[in-house]
Write a protein that binds this DNA or RNA. Structure first.
Length: 567
RNA sequence: UGGGGGAUCGUCUAGCGGCAGGACGAUGGGUUCUGGCCCCAUUAACCGAGGUUCGAAUCCUCGUCCCCCAGCCA
């Protein structure tokens, strides 16, 4: 029995479980916290990508699902790499994804004074000291993965001397690199992170928010846990590579006897086929000019996907479908594309767009006649309305829809073949016009007047339906056809002597000169639609008056291509 | 070779001692004025070897493979 209906009170959709939700649920049930508080803590040193979207959806999603709050906090402790440009783009991207952070954005730099006081306290506790070894020496003293490190000669400096030195570090008495504040833990610790990690370094650098107020800046391990604590974060969620740092996270909070102690949980970062995800590599693609910028529609950045026409809801759905676990993964690009199509199929209006035009002259249609036909914006959803489109003697169809020699199972246009022009007439190809090179440049055809509106009373079967445009009324458009940035699943799998940028797909962008229906003249950049039978397209910001520029967001699934590929 | 993690259909993921389930993909079919959407079906997995148990993906032991850590980056 497959036709049983679900009871009305059963939810249609339940968000999938994951191990972090389990923890949150258990903590809430145990009364460990009054409410959950998470945070998304990007460093403003680059643009956000789809991997960040996973973290954003997780952190904000947890807050939403369990009635808590999520902070946006910029981890801005490295002034030489960070900038307001990145801060602004990150805020815009999070908002665009559909999330609202609790209160104002937070900045680790807002906590610099408190952090400094905590450092002083650590010194007074005898748990931190000023080291005056060079960076090089510190590395040598650290030992290796298999050998213990050894103590710095400065490790036994007294509290007063440390206090004095640290004060003078802050006061700007020393040049960069001369001293560093280190936690005093254990140079023989099996976890290298715990071998007296540096927590403050001298950097005479201008900070994008604090200006020149500071010349000592705290490091990640010291800053992050305390920032979480200050904000009352309950669950501090990060990626797997910070697993080793958790021990230090806990050490700092325990040693300082802080009023609360957030717990860190790690999940596996997102990897995807056919792209790269690390900040360093994305920067390289931009600076070496392999793409046009951070928001190039081929980039896995949030801004790139936005420009490509991916709806935020599709990204959210994607993040939910990929799940959250602790195992290494490489998600297929096809899943992302599926989520995009699913969303766009529901919402994108259908329009007529011909990407590679082929002119057809309808010999039995009067030269000066124009008829208007009604086209629904979405045949499956009448609520989306309709518009009128003109038909005339000369039209454009898609080059791909004509074959001089029809292969097996071909039911598009070919000499002598009859097809349907969507919502208009049945059309039969009666002749082919070629240029000197033998290329087909124009078709001759006739229509069946009885088929007006796109159907006939005799119920004759016409399998192929084509999109088309009245040549005289069509708007010219530049159409940017995007494909995979890298043809192979793993771009990093380059052979010896080559690097991943050598793998950039030379056909990841091809530009076509096409036409679109006149109703699109007034649309604004960001407008997303479906060119019927072709794909989803989005009006690009490069659009200027009389020169529409469309980005191909995604193709439609192409069953014919598969049939033909199989022979 | 120190320490910390991870291995379930092609891919992602569920499972918490009791019928290995879902999604994507692939394949076949139905429907169709988009070769789209939708619908149906098929495909296909517990890293290995032992052990505990009436019963193990799950618990134990021993292996194998993969990832992370030696920044004054995050």
């Amino acid at each position: 029995m497959t036709s049983e209906k679900k009871p009305a009170d059963e939810p249609l959709y339940t968000p999938p479980p994951n191990f972090i939700k389990d923890v949150v649920k258990a903590d809430l049930a145990a009364g460990k916290h009054a409410a959950v508080r998470t945070r998304f803590p990007p460093e403003p040193n680059g643009y956000l990508h789809i991997g960040h979207a996973k973290s954003i959806c997780l952190n904000f999603g947890l807050a939403n699902e369990f009635g808590g709050a999520c902070n946006l906090r910029f981890d801005d402790t490295n002034p030489t790499k960070e900038s307001v440009e990145y801060v602004d783009s990150i805020k815009a991207d999070v908002r665009w994804l559909g999330f609202s952070w609790d209160g104002e954005p937070r900045y680790a730099s807002d906590y610099f004074e408190q952090l400094y006081e905590f450092a002083v306290k650590l010194i007074k506790l005898g748990k931190a000291y000023v080291d005056s070894l060079t960076a090089e020496e510190i590395r040598e003293y650290r030992g290796t993965l298999t050998e213990p490190g050894k103590n710095s000669p400065y490790r036994e400096r007294g509290v007063e001397e440390n206090l004095d030195l640290f004060t003078r570090m802050r006061a700007g008495e020393f040049p960069d690199g001369t001293h560093v504040l280190r936690a005093r833990i254990d140079m023989a610790h099996p976890n290298i992170v715990m071998r007296d990690p540096a927590i403050y370094r001298i950097r005479h650098a201008h900070h994008h928010r604090t200006g020149d107020a500071w010349c000592v800046y705290p490091l990640y391990d010291f800053t992050h846990c305390l920032s979480d604590m200050i904000e009352g974060v309950t669950h501090s969620i990060c990626t797997l590579e910070f697993e080793n740092n958790r021990e230090l996270y806990d050490w700092v909070l325990d040693t300082l006897h802080t009023p609360c102690h957030p717990r860190q949980y790690e999940f596996a970062r997102l990897n995807m086929t056919h792209t790269v995800m690390s900040k360093r590599r994305l920067i390289q693609l931009v600076t070496e000019g392999h793409v046009a910028g951070w928001d190039d529609p081929r980039m896995p950045t949030i801004s790139g996907m936005r420009r490509r026409g991916y709806p935020p809801a599709a990204l959210r759905t994607f993040c939910e479908r990929i799940g959250v676990s602790r195992s290494e993964n490489r998600v297929e690009f096809a899943l992302l594309e599926h989520c995009v199509r699913e969303e766009l199929n529901r919402n994108a209006p259908r329009v007529m767009g011909v990407v590679r035009p082929l002119k057809v002259v309808i010999e039995n249609y009067p030269e000066d006649q124009v008829e208007w036909f009604e086209f629904p914006f979405n045949p499956e959803d009448p609520a989306q309305g309709s518009r009128q489109l003109p038909f005339s003697r000369e039209i454009y169809v898609e080059q791909d829809d004509f074959r001089e020699e029809a292969p097996k199972k071909w039911f598009r246009l070919a000499p002598g073949a009859e097809v349907r022009l969507r919502y208009a007439y049945y059309l039969t190809c009666t002749g082919v016009v070629k240029n000197a090179d033998g290329q087909v440049v124009e078709l001759r055809a006739t229509i069946d007047p009885e088929s007006r509106g796109g159907w006939t009373k005799d119920g004759r079967k016409v399998k192929g339906t084509l999109h088309w445009l009245s040549a005289a009324h069509a708007l010219p458009a530049e159409v940017r056809l995007y494909d995979l940035l890298f043809p192979m699943e793993n771009p990093m799998g380059a052979e010896e002597g080559r690097t991943f940028t050598d793998n950039v797909n030379p056909e990841s962008l091809t530009i076509a000169r096409g036409f679109v229906e006149p109703s699109l003249a007034e649309q604004k950049p960001g407008f997303i639609c479906q060119f019927e039978r072709v794909g989803y397209f989005c009006l690009d910001p490069d659009t200027v008056k009389d020169e529409l520029v469309f980005n191909r967001t995604a193709t439609l699934r192409d069953t014919w291509a598969k049939i033909e590929a199989k022979g």
